[in-house]
Each structure stands twice: as C-alpha cells, then as structure tokens.
Design a protein around this nucleic acid. Sequence first.
DNA 1: CAGATAGGTAACCTATTCGTTACCTATGAA
DNA 2: TTCATAGGTAACGAATAGGTTACCTATCTG
Lengths: 117, 117
Amino acid sequence: MKDKQVDLVFSVLAHAARRRMLDLVMQAPGISVSALGTHFDMSRIAVLKHIHVLEKAELLISKKEGRTRHLYFNPIPIQMIYDRWTTQYSAFWSSHMADIKDRVETRAAGKRGSKRA
Amino acid sequence: MKDKQVDLVFSVLAHAARRRMLDLVMQAPGISVSALGTHFDMSRIAVLKHIHVLEKAELLISKKEGRTRHLYFNPIPIQMIYDRWTTQYSAFWSSHMADIKDRVETRAAGKRGSKRA
DNA sequence: CAGATAGGTAACCTATTCGTTACCTATGAA
DNA sequence: TTCATAGGTAACGAATAGGTTACCTATCTG
C-alpha cells in the first residue's frame, strides 16, 4: 500500500461525517445517496461530495441501478492500514504497555485537570 | 474521545512525513528538532510546524532542556483510535472475515500473521 | 406525456494546509 | 564578550477542502 493511498484513507477518516457515513452504510448495505443524506445536516451536494471522496479512497463501492446509486462499505483499505499499524506500533506498545495502561487508568480514575505536555 | 480529537489524530496521520516523524521519534526517543529535520527534504520551519501539529494532537510530547527540545512519542491517542476502530469494525470484519481474509491473503501471498480483531 | 424523484455538474466562496523567506530569541562555548 | 547553534514567530502564497446555490439529466409513475 503506497503512501499516497494511506494518506488518502487517513484524510478521508479525518472527518466525522465521513466516518458516520461508513457506519451507516455498513449498517444498511445498499443504502441510496439520498437516504444516506437524510442523516446529515448538510446539502445533498455536500453529501455527494463526501461519497465521491470515500469512493476515491475505495472505502465505499457504489452500484447504480436505474436512477438509484446503492452504496456498500469496503473494509479492505481499513484492514490494510490496521495490519500495517499493528505491525508498526506493536513493538512499541508491547514494550511500553504496562506503563501506558497505568497512565490511562490513572487518568480514567478521575484525574481531570492535569494534562501532560 | 471526542470527534474533534479523532478528526485531529486522523488528519495528522494523513501525511507521510508526519507518520515518518512518529517512526523516527519512536526509534530515537529524545531526538531533537534539528536532528529530526535532517531526515526531511523540507525547511526546518516546515518540520517545526509538523511537530507542532503532532504535539497538538498529543502524538508527540516534547521537553525542552537548555536550547534543545527533546521529542517523545505518545502512543495513547493511537491506542484509543485503535480500540475504537476494532470495536467499531470488528462486527463487520468478523461477519465478512472469511471473504476478506481470502482476498488479503491472495495479495499478501505468503506473508505471516492473520490478526484477529 | 407531465411531473416528481434520484442523481450529477459547474461555479463560486471561505477557511485551512503546507510550504516558503525573513527575522528574532535563548543558550552554550571559546 | 562574541559568535555559532537550536529553536521560534510572522507574514505570505499556492493549493486544497468543504460547503453553498443554480441548473441539468435520467428514470420512474400516474
């Protein structure tokens, strides 16, 4: 998987609306563009643009039937990044996991005010 | 973890140079800004800006000693997203895993390590 | 056919991103 | 003190992102 493709997938995921679109399509495979659009507080055109971006990153696949475009989630790019990610960070994680777990749990335990850095 | 924070982390990771910076800092904890900069074909200022973005997303932590800023990798935000991700997509993955696994392995052709989500 | 419905393009506007150069500040060493 | 070095700000510019309105095309249905 090339850098450019990884860039694209990450940048696509960097927008809450698009992440939500993926969720919705995952939950309702074959949903139409307009049906998807009803869940968002933006124009139909904006939704359409997001769909185009998602398709360009191959996170969505669409199939047009008649006048309706049906949308499907494609997990492969995310799967790829997931694999790469675990490989890339697992060494660090495993060697620091006790420490991290401790810090996360300390923060979760009600220490709100003091952020590190 | 709020949407905005997730947006930020993903957008930060959507740049190959920044991903590489994380790798480098992970491999050389405490590296200085200028030492990090030698690995990149861009001005020192551009590197500095990327570092600021990484710090804003809390993927890097820095500590200044004298005139030198030492950089450290903070895995927590990635860990957070990783957890969310696996939760969010694992249902889909597991229900389609045979299919996906088959396709992925066909491409990987001999690579080891089928991860379970 | 007429009209409603689903999708799609084009043009435009504003904010942000990512890089630059120029210049400033703080620290360490000779 | 003097000067090189590490870091940092400010201002700018080109490109891209993310939204809008206006308008067009295709298809289904009464």
